[in-house]
Every structure is written in structure tokens, then in C-alpha cells.
Design a binder for these strands. Sequence first.
DNA 1: CGCCAGGGCCTCA
DNA 2: TGAGGCCATGGC
Length: 221
Amino acid sequence: MKDLNKIYKLLLNQYGKQNWWPTTLEKDIHPTYHGKKLDDSMRFEIVVGAILTQNTSWKNVEKAIIELNKNKILTINGILKNKVQKLEKTIKSAGYYRQKAERLKIIAKFFKENPFSKLKKLQTEKLREILLNIKGIGPETADSILLYAFEKPVFVIDAYTKRMCHYLGICSADLDYNEIQKLFMKNLKPDAKLFNEYHALIVEHSKHCYSKKPYCDELLK
DNA sequence: CGCCAGGGCCTCA
DNA sequence: TGAGGCCATGGC
């Protein structure tokens, strides 16, 4: 069995750097993050994307984010000022739009009351706990926010990661979120840049190998 | 037409 | 605590 560091090297070699969090920079509509230092508006956009992409393809999320930006709703105050019905209409393409509109309201309120500058000073574990107590934020969304918006070395586990690990014989199919996360974090250097790329590479690789059955992974098996 | 997409909440044992 | 139902649009 290949170890997790080896798998990373294979994926990086195959697909190259992913430079997440992804944006539609070619459309020149919202800010580009590539190689830039994150500011708070960028961090918030990442949080919004993390909510919208729950069980949803990024393509559909991208449309919703563009619509939010066009309507000047892609900010904490924008989300707070607009009616939930307006939010629902704007993010419709992302699916589950009623739930997600409500969730955006809740997280906007949270980040209004708790600025990034304050939250950044908290211990990662403490911040994770706080995020998990927000309605609409589960383990994957919390960890995506920690890793991509706060740049904390937290490994994000998603359905693809579980599928891939099970297929490769790295873990059993029913291993729970925290256990499989530990598996990655114990075997890798705690480096936010590494975790950022690794998770993105797993998603990219899985779109090729783990989207439709029967799964077939010539690269890693 | 059916399946899937970068999940999470609620309910009910 | 864990399995199952539910949420919903768009691509293929």
C-alpha cells in the first residue's frame, strides 16, 4: 500500500498545483486569490462558497457567487441587508436554496459579530468547536473554512476522500470523519499549504476516478 | 430518463 | 450514535 505522502506526490505530478480556493478569475468579476494574501472580504467569500458547495457541484456554486456579486450581496452587510427571499432567488443555481439562504444569513451574522481578526487569534481547536456549533456548518464545512479561509493546517475530509481511501485499502468504508482526518494529519507534515493542495488534488483526481462506478484508479492502485 | 454533485439537519429508534 | 429521509438545481 502506498503511503499518504507518496500519494500526494503522484497526484501533484499528475495534475499540478490546484491553487485553491478556486475563483472565476477569468471573468474578472470577483477577486483573485492566486498567490495573493487573503483579506477579510476574500475570506468571507470563501466561507460563502463553502456553504454553497455543500453536496453541490462547483459549477452551480460559481453561478450563484457571480449572481451574489452582481447584486452586491457578496459581503457580510450585503447578506444581512437583503431579504432572505432575495437571497434565495440569487443563489438558486446552487440548489437547496432555501436552506442555504438561511445558512448565509446565520454565518453573516456570526462574522459580523466576530470579525476575522479576532477569530484568527483563537486556537484552531477552539475555533473549530465554535464553527461546528453554528447551524449549517458540519465537519467538512468547518474544516474547509479553517483551511482555506483561516489558512490553518486542518485536513478536509469529503465523500471523495473516503471513497478513495476505501478503494485503495487505506481505511474501512464506515470510518467516521474524525478518524479518517486523524489518519491524514498523523501521517503528514502539519502544513496548511500542503493540506490545501492535497485536498484539492483529491477532489480533482476523484472527479476522474471516483465519480461513477465501477471506480477505476490506475494512478494510485 | 436516472444519477450525481467538494453535506448537514432532523427524526426516530 | 447511527441509519434514513429530506433538501433542489444543473450537467451529462
